[in-house]
Design a protein around this nucleic acid. Structure first.
Lengths: 234, 234
DNA sequence: TGACTCCAAGTGTGATCACACATATCACCC
DNA sequence: GGGTGATATGTGTGATCACACTTGGAGTCA
């Protein structure tokens, strides 16, 4: 009587996968967010509710929620006629975001260090390899994705949800421009060297070295982008 | 022909005040935000769209937008049955938020220092007086308001919009608990002493002293709240 | 030719209705 | 009496319609 087929359902391993219920709003949000993060949209590009709704094949309601969510995260800003658009980065804002990144990501690394184990180091080293391959094959999308996965892996070890969400929003704000620096060979070489420094600091458990390496990574990106922006303005 | 009455409208000083068009969603958002910041709502209190809509006398649509906005800011969190509720602070989250506050508000003070002038110092000194009066009269609402105005005045001088919005969201997250520490005489005395230190550092332009005073303020609040939470748990 | 008027398209905002889901209550049957 | 199923209530989600506002350009008149 006890060994009915139903009994298996309650076992932890033998049941069905938990059904991931993603609302339409959530799906639209994730798609837009991903495209912003990877620089799919041009800076300044307007995103209206109706246009996005038509492109996604849904009503304006989920789109409205998704866009507002992105607006609060500073991933989108209000344009001229109240239409939301991808933010255009100026040098001052770049400096502000970079300063915040240094403060928060430096803090996140310090908090994460005690929780970093050998598995993490292996994953980070593997992601370094993926980035290297992406550079050789010229796959910018893959590089950007691996780069975020690399940093995210570290920060999520700090077990700080709020801090992680803020850091993500800062990356989101810089997303449309990351792709630009990812085309510069010198920047990529330098970035890969820094990434290896980070992994090495993680392996040896050197907290100060890890922090300074992360800071160096952020400053390098800020410097290259600042240079690009200045060049663009002239 | 040029000096028609219409000409005055285009002048910068002689026109009408720009009409502040606040949407319903914006009004609901501001009201809820203010009440969260000043600890009007109890931690854990659920806020459903329909209940808020009925209380505010509007449809569920503006309320939905306002609640989602607050959710993204971490000012509200999802409860059991997907209903949003005022977040309950645990010691770990308190430490996380305080660490972020130290990193970001310390940075904001440093960036603000060069822009601080004698007017700012006068305003800050005045706000200290307001806080003092509020303590004597026992008006906690007025004290909390003046306290936020004091810090906000400093941070907004850093001319860093994004940083300011993040700092605000952190204050919002701690809002429901600020009121608790504002009942403790020892905490208030210590806070007022620190506030005077901040003003003094602003007056003399001592950047390091200003930063350390702000950090001391945050650490004092974190310490007192942590103590209160531990006492509550037992 | 120039300035002005008017209209159409596009935008966000808000209300209302309908639906799926979760929970609690209670009658019901074994 | 205790488990079982139906129902009522409250919840978020989404679609559809209506409205106010902005903007652009075509058309018109001086």
């Amino acid at each position: 009587m006890a060994n009915r087929a139903v009994a298996d359902w309650s076992s932890d391993s033998g049941g069905l996968e938990p059904i991931a219920r993603a609302t339409l709003q959530e799906q639209v949000y994730q798609q837009l967010r991903n495209r912003i993060m990877t620089g799919f949209f041009q800076p300044g590009q307007p995103l209206s509710t109706r246009s996005v709704a038509e492109a996604a094949g849904v009503s304006v309601m989920p789109v409205r929620d998704a866009l507002r969510r992105l607006e609060v995260e500073n991933a989108l800003v209000v344009g001229n006629n109240r239409t939301l658009q991808v933010p255009i980065l100026d040098v001052d804002t770049l400096q502000e975001i970079s300063a915040m990144r240094i403060a928060l990501e430096g803090l996140a690394v310090e908090r994460a260090m005690p929780a970093i184990n050998t598995d993490d180091v292996a994953v980070l080293r593997n992601l370094c390899g993926v980035m290297n391959d992406s550079i050789l094959s010229g796959d910018i999308d893959k590089y950007l994705e691996a780069n975020w996965a690399f940093h995210n892996r570290i920060y999520e070890r700090s077990s700080s949800e709020i801090m992680l969400s803020v850091i993500e929003s800062l990356w989101l704000r810089m997303g449309p421009y990351f792709r630009l620096t990812a085309k510069d060979k010198n920047h990529l070489d330098n970035a890969m060297k820094i990434h290896h420094d980070i992994v090495e600091a993680m392996r040896t458990g050197d907290c100060a070295a890890a922090r300074s390496a992360v800071v160096a990574d952020i400053e390098a990106a800020a410097g290259d982008l600042s240079q690009w922006l200045a060049q663009q303005a002239s």
